[in-house]
Write a protein that binds this DNA or RNA. Sequence first.
DNA 1: CCTACTAAATGGAACGTTCCAAAAAATCAA
DNA 2: TTGATTTTTTGGAACGTTCCATTTAGTAGG
Lengths: 347, 347
Amino acid sequence: MASRPKATILDIAREAGVSKSTVSLVLQGSDLIRPETALKVRKAIEDVGYVYNRGAANLRKAHSNVIGMVINDLTNPFFAEMAVGMERVFQSAGIVPFIANTAENPVRQEEVLKSLMEQGVAGLIVSPARGTAPGAFRRIEMAGLPIVFTMRRLPESRIPVIAPDNHRGAWLATAHLIGKGHRRLAFFGGSSDLVVYHERLGGFREACAALGIAKRDTLVVEGETSRKGGIACLETALAMAEPPTAALCFNDAVAFGVMLALRKRGLEPGADFAVVGFDDVIEAQHYMPALTSVAVDSAGLGERAAHVMLKMIQSRTTRAEDHIGAVNLVVRDSCGPDRRAGMGDAA
Amino acid sequence: MASRPKATILDIAREAGVSKSTVSLVLQGSDLIRPETALKVRKAIEDVGYVYNRGAANLRKAHSNVIGMVINDLTNPFFAEMAVGMERVFQSAGIVPFIANTAENPVRQEEVLKSLMEQGVAGLIVSPARGTAPGAFRRIEMAGLPIVFTMRRLPESRIPVIAPDNHRGAWLATAHLIGKGHRRLAFFGGSSDLVVYHERLGGFREACAALGIAKRDTLVVEGETSRKGGIACLETALAMAEPPTAALCFNDAVAFGVMLALRKRGLEPGADFAVVGFDDVIEAQHYMPALTSVAVDSAGLGERAAHVMLKMIQSRTTRAEDHIGAVNLVVRDSCGPDRRAGMGDAA
DNA sequence: CCTACTAAATGGAACGTTCCAAAAAATCAA
DNA sequence: TTGATTTTTTGGAACGTTCCATTTAGTAGG
C-alpha cells in the first residue's frame, strides 16, 4: 500500500469528467471556471487524495513560492527570534520559508545553498557562516536570484544587508560603563574575521576615545561567541597586571559566560565587575543579576528582511538598500546599583 | 542583468559539444563517461553558471533528497538542539533537511505540510503542534510518505514516535524530591491536550503513590510551557492553604519561571522550595542555582529520528517502531543542599 | 580486412504542469 | 431562427530532466 501511483491532474480530470486544463484552472483559483464545475473538480481532488506537484508547475512558470533562510547558528536564540519575525510576514504573503542551518560551517553552507537553489527558491535570506569565502555568493548573484544578508555582511560584497546599528550600540554601552565611573574597560569575545566584530569594537573604541579613556586602559580579548568564550575572556583579563573593571561583551552569550566566571571566583557581577551584553535575548532579563544589554529588536530585523525580500521579488530586481536597525541600551543590574541620576546617559 | 534565461542541460551540451544525455550522465557521476569528456562537461557547467533543476529531475525519478522537519516551537532551545542532531546524520547521507516552524499553530502546520509535500520531500519528521486534529496526517499517510513524530504523539495514530521516556523521567524526579524529605508536592505547567503531559504527570502520580504521598498532598497546576507559565503556577500554588514545598515542572522553561517567581518573593530556590525541570537544556546548568533536571538527550533523539527516517526511505516502507529514549536525572542545586548519601535515590 | 566484442555517446519519449489559441456552449439581439 | 457576443472549456506544445534503446567508436582476435 505504500506506493500507489500518485494521482496527477489527469486522474482528477477523468474523475471529474473535465479536461486537465480545467483542473489546472481550478487549482489556480481562476474565475474563468463555472462555480459548479469548480466544485465538482474540488471534490474529485479531495476524493483522490491528490497532491499538487510544484516541481512540474515550476517547470513552466519558473517561480516558486518558497524562499530559503540560511542561518549560521540555529541554537542561538537570537536567530530563532529573527526567524519567527520573518515567518510572520512571509506567512501573510502566502510564502513558506524553509530554514536551513549551516552550523557556522562554510562547506555546509555551500551544500545548503546549492540544494536550495536546485529546489528553485524564489529568494534567499542568509546570515553567512564565519569564514565564508568572498566569492561564495557569486553564483547566486549571477543567477539573478534575490538575496539579502542579515546580521552579517561580507567584506566586499554589494548584497544588501539588514543589521542593527552595531557601532552605535557599542558606543552607547561603552558610554554607559564610563558614566558609571569605570576607567579600565575591556571588550570581550568575537573574532576579527567578522565584519560585525569590527563594527562593535569600533563603537567601543570611539566611545573610549571620545570620553577620555586612554587606549592603554582598554583591553580587547577575542574569543568564541559563547558562554565558554566569555569564561575564557574573563580569565585572561583578570590575569593582567591592571585588570579592567568592566566589559562590553560581543554578545549576550559571552556576557553570561563572564558572569558565570565571576561568580566562580567569588566576584559579584555588577558590584565587583560591570558587564554589558549585546543582542538582548530573552534570557537577559531573567539572569541573576539581570543583564544590561544592547537591544537590537531581532524579530523586527527579521520582519524587515522579509519585507525587503518581498519587494525584491515583486520588482524582480536584485538590488536593495541596506537597512540599519535602531538599537537601544536596556539598563538592568549587571553594571552595579542604579545611579542613573546625574549620569552622562541622557546626552 | 537580473534575468538572463537560465542555462539548461542543453546549453551546456552545446557548450561542451556533446549531447544532453552525456551531460545528464556526468551530472549523476556515472562512470559510463570517459573522464576527459566528463572534465570538458564540468568545465562548461562552471563557465555557464548552470544550476541543476531538481524539480525537472524529480518529474522523472520521483524521489528527492530533501526531507522536511516540522517543528512546533523554534524558539525552544530544546528543538534547536534536536534539529542539530538530525542534521548531523542527514548530512552524512547527502540529504538536506529543511526546517519549518509551525509556532504551535495547527493551521500554520497545515500550510507548512502542504507546501512541503508539494515540494516533493522524501519524508517528514514532525513534532506536531498542540491541538492538531486527529486526522491531520491522514493525507500524508495515504500518499505513502514516510513520516515520524518526535517528542509528541497524537492520540490515536499509528505513526512511529521518537520520544524520551517521559514516564520514567517524571518518576525519577519525583522520587528524588520525596527522597529529599518533601511531603507536599506539585506538578507545574503543561496542558492536558498533550499526550506528553499525561505521560509525565502519570510518572509523577505513580511515584507519589508508590512512595507514600497521599493524593491530597499533591497539587497539579496546568499552565503555559514557558517562563511565564511557571511564574503563574507558583503564584497559584503559594496561594493555597497548605502550599507544596517542591515541584516537578513540565519542562525547564517552566522551572526557570518558578525560580524567578520564588526570588521575586524573597524565597530561595533550593532552600525554601525545591524545583526540578525536564529536558535539561543547556541553560539549566548555568542558572543560579543550577537546575536539577531530567536529561533527555535531545541531540540523541534527533539522531535517532533521522536514522529511523533514513531506514524508512531506504526500505520504502511507512512503518517503523517507536523509540523511547533513555532519560536520567541530573542533580544540581535547585533541590537544596546535596544530601544524597542515605537517600532513596539508589534503588 | 572482417567479425565480435566492449566502451562511449546519443536521440527520443516520458514525467505533471501551464498557457495559448481555438473550439464549444451559453446568452442575447434582432 | 440566425448571427454576434460572451462565457466556458479544451487540445497540444512547451518546460528541463532521466533513462531506455540505439548508434557510433574503439579494441582484439582471427
